[in-house]
Each structure stands twice: as C-alpha cells, then as structure tokens.
Design a protein around this nucleic acid. Sequence first.
DNA 1: AGCGGATTGATTCTGCATACTCATCACCAT
DNA 2: ATGGTGATGAGTATGCAGAATCAATCCGCT
Lengths: 127, 127
Amino acid sequence: MKRSTKQRSVISKVLATAGRPLNPQEVLEAGQHELPGLGIATVYRTLNLLADEHLIKVVDVPGQGSRYYEMANLAQHDHFFCQACHRVFDIAAPSQAQPPPVPEAFTVETTETVYSGRCPNCKAGTA
Amino acid sequence: MKRSTKQRSVISKVLATAGRPLNPQEVLEAGQHELPGLGIATVYRTLNLLADEHLIKVVDVPGQGSRYYEMANLAQHDHFFCQACHRVFDIAAPSQAQPPPVPEAFTVETTETVYSGRCPNCKAGTA
DNA sequence: AGCGGATTGATTCTGCATACTCATCACCAT
DNA sequence: ATGGTGATGAGTATGCAGAATCAATCCGCT
C-alpha cells in the first residue's frame, strides 16, 4: 500500500464509521454508495492490506463462512451475531479482569466470546 | 436412522470417548481404526443424523472451515482451539451465573467462548 | 503535463467442506 | 435362512470464500 487511492480511503472510512464489524460484502455495498464502481476484488485486497498493517482486525464468527473486519483501535469487547440478518454487533465486555479459566498447560493467545440470537431489529420484525 | 449399523455405533463411540470435540476428518480417522472401510460420506451423513436427533451438537470454531461435533449431554463449558494442531478441547466454564452483558434489546440464544492458542502438546513441541 | 509503476475491476480459478449418486451390501423382521 | 429396504462407500458435483490474472486506469513525482 504505497498510494492513497479513493477506494482505499472509502473502505477505511466505511469501517471507521460502521460502528460494528463488517464482512467483505457489507464493505462492498457500503463502499459502493460512495464509489459506485468499487469492485469486490479491491475490497478483499484492501481488507488484507489493512489487516496486514494492523489498522483493522479480523473477527471470526462461528458458523459463518465469511470473516468480519473492524477497526483495530477499539477497546476489548465481545460480539453479538444476529442469526436473522447475519450482522455482527459490538458488545461492551464486562470488566472481567480475571484470567481465563484455562489450565496453565495451555497458552492462551486470544479469547473470543460471541453471543448469538436476534438483534433488536430482527427481534421486532420476526416474532 | 432406522437401523443400527456398525458404522453408526462406531461413530457414536468415537465421539463419546474422544473427550473433546472432533471434526469429520478426525471422526473418520478415529473410526477407521475400528472399522477400516469407513467412508467420509458415511461420517458426514451420520453426524448430520446424530445432530438432527440432538444426540450430538455442533461446535463452530472461529476461523476454522470445518465444524466440530461433541456429545450433547455435557455440562456447559467453553472451548480451546489449538492454532498449531487444530484440535479443540473442552474447558470447564467458570461459575459465571451472571447474565451476558448484552443490552436487553438483544435476544441471546447461545453464548460461545473460544480461547485459542497452543495446547500443552504443541506448546512443548514447538517452542 | 508526462511518465512509470502501482492499483483497479471483471473475470476466472482454486481450494475446501459438504451434499449427491448409485450400485452394492448389510440389517432385521419373518 | 431369506428378502426387501435402508445404509454404505467411492467418486463426483456443488456452493462459496477468497486468490490470481491482466489489461486498463490512476497516483504522485519530476
């Protein structure tokens, strides 16, 4: 990433203003609102570049094929996956300063808690 | 599932004695120790059948393509994913009776906490 | 403004997990 | 023991996320 192009700034802005993790498709659609010609290949490439530079980070959601991306400079938090609309939301993590309940023989590098169910939108819409 | 066949009992036994969640490949390999001719198609079919009958349940691990299966009659617990050997281990959950810190507007159906890092085996073996 | 190289976008390709197909085989009631 | 039917296994097909390709285009420096 040596040049600053319109598509890259748009993709960065989309992620910065989304307020929740987005997958490549969502990034594409949001980006196309500002830059109609934006292509999916560029989205994948740019997300990888931004992730390589640790400007964004990857959120893997169980049971979902595609990955989600969000800004890297966010406080520790959990995620909520809506089974209806397949969107991911940030959930403020409880002040759980306690170490993970994993036997010492294991080396824990990441802890990921994902709640899943229905978001307020889908809860209302679909019984 | 109307008949009880050798392959089905073997697959059930493999899951029951594994002590940790297994993916279809692991089930296949473990099952072939007891039933050399076992085929991957039968593993997938049988896992789906057992899951349909709620005898086993699916464990989705973030960042992993394939799914893991474990016995359904286990106490609530978390999972640990070894990034080196790609095996999943059960981790006794802390006695966190507290409700999830999710806004009330969300309906939580499942809570899944996955730790990832290195299991004792891989920790020792690979620096 | 001009130039060279990086970037883009449409398309194609790949890799993987899992479902399907179908001929053969095994379970189980008789 | 036998027969009918559900189950099996090898191979193939499918669906999808993401990577590779490549000609056309854009960025940034001079």
